[in-house]
Write a protein that binds this DNA or RNA. Structure first.
Length: 390
RNA sequence: GGAGGGGUGGGUGAGUGGUUAAAGCCACCAGACUGUAAAUCUGGCGUCCGGAAGGGCUUCGUAGGUUCGAAUCCUACCCCCUCCA
């Protein structure tokens, strides 16, 4: 029982399909909640599954540092360790190459890290990244890549991209030679920053290697949304039709809609859960800040359309209180709500694709949804200044 | 009755002659968050004018006083706390 992907239906560029893994199947387009340290923060696996999640993402770098790959293996692998019986995808640690700033050094052999926990030194190369993930036992594992910040020189982007390609080949070889090749899927990652020529080159080079799936990396790191959407469309079009396409680290509601529209099958993102812990609640109208005083005496649910546990049982005023009082139940309720919101959204997206009405669904989504993007904030500010007579 | 300690901005609490509109923390207000070093981070927070830079005014229990200059020193008063009787 290995890994496979079946494309069921397309509507424009949008695709509906199904992933099969040794730990069960997942319908696509799929959103994967992030459980970096083998837990979606604050939630039990049952609660996560209850929101509609089918796949969760864990981070091999963080688990390598703590509790250690051996430790997880002793518990029988990630699935039994964290009591998640569905599919798991692990990220290699490539994103930490980008996010850990001063604590890391990249060279041809891999990445040298200083542990953020105890300062100890570690080195992870493409082979180690693969073997760590193999031993963790995830269903889908990722190549080690070099994710790079937005705004750096094209030369730097190119050299990170070239290195990512060399590492991809090494990861593939390492995985191919192992006994896990059929039980674990290995995905390659396209890089190339915001440069269309580099993205094209990267998409072709990575597609040349017969990975089980293909990821678009290095986005949502500071470029504009339009750039992100454009690159996503460009790269998705260059990836094999019959393999899943995974846009890494992207997952605001509007991005899910827009990137499915550009041909993406899989997403992961910390946004819904992180932002939830800071009081932001997704609704069809956009994000709402539950910590605002205006919710203090609201008797109904924050999101009347939602069927999550919190929205069914608690008022917005109660949730407001939990956040003000810094009670952890508030974080949990907000987290499950945001996940539930996203999975209901993904469900509607898939249904629309299958029924060939994705475009009208997308239009309807935008009829209500108001993201708090820079342009909107700027507009609000100008309006406000005008109102003050400035 | 006796001995001692103390009253600082919404709260807590530094500060004992000038660099103090007054540290830090909390609360409050605003903003951010996209392959999680995040239940985190950033900014504001006496008042008035200003978009800002900046400037004006009023503050450290109350009232006086000393001094070029006081939250800081002196005097009186008011209030609070601890211990002894």
């Amino acid at each position: 029982m290995g890994f496979s992907f079946r494309l069921d239906h397309t509507d424009g560029l949008a695709r509906a399909g199904e992933l099969a893994t040794p730990h069960g199947n997942a319908r696509t387009p799929a959103f994967m909640p992030v459980g970096t340290q083998a837990t979606v923060k604050g939630l039990t696996p049952e609660e996560v599954a209850g929101t509609g999640a089918q796949v969760v993402l864990c981070n091999a770098y963080h688990l390598y540092l703590r509790p250690g790959v051996d430790a997880v293996a002793r518990f029988g692998g990630l699935h039994s360790f964290m009591h998640w019986n569905g599919p798991i995808l692990t990220d290699s640690g490539g994103f930490q190459v980008f996010s850990m700033g001063a604590l890391r050094k990249v060279d041809e052999d891999g990445v040298r890290f200083r542990s953020h926990i105890d300062g100890s030194e570690h080195r992870i190369g493409p082979r180690e990244a693969v073997s760590n993930q193999q031993r963790l036992g995830a269903d889908i594992i990722m190549c080690l890549d070099q994710c790079i910040a937005h705004g750096v020189s094209k030369d730097a982007v190119r050299s990170a991209m070239d290195r990512t390609h060399r590492w991809a080949a090494q990861c593939y070889q390492a995985h191919l030679r192992s006994a896990n090749f059929d039980s674990q899927a290995l995905f390659g990652i396209v890089q190339g920053g915001a440069f269309t020529d580099l993205r094209e080159e990267s998409a072709k080079r990575i597609s040349d290697i017969p990975f089980h799936g293909y990821a678009i990396g290095g986005l949502a790191v500071g470029e504009s949304k339009q750039q992100m959407y454009d690159i996503t469309r460009q790269v998705a079009a260059l990836l094999p039709q019959d393999k899943p396409r995974y846009l890494m680290g992207v997952g605001s509601p509007e991005d899910l809609v827009e990137c499915v529209a550009r041909g993406v099958d899989m997403f992961d993102c910390v946004l819904p859960t992180r932002v939830a812990r800071n009081g932001a609640i997704f609704t069809r109208h956009g994000r709402v800040d539950i910590t605002k005083r205006s919710f203090a005496d609201v008797d109904g649910p924050v999101d009347p359309e939602c069927d999550c546990y919190g929205c069914c049982n608690f008022s917005a005023g109660y949730l407001w209180h939990l956040f003000r009082a810094k009670e952890m139940l508030g974080l949990r309720l907000a987290s499950t709500h945001n996940l539930r919101y996203l999975f209901r959204l993904m469900g509607k997206i898939r249904e629309a694709i299958v029924e060939n009405r994705f475009e009208s669904f997308r239009r309807e989504f935008w009829e209500y949804y108001r993201p708090t993007d820079e342009a909107t904030r700027q507009q609000q500010k100008e309006k406000w200044l005008k109102a003050r007579g400035g």
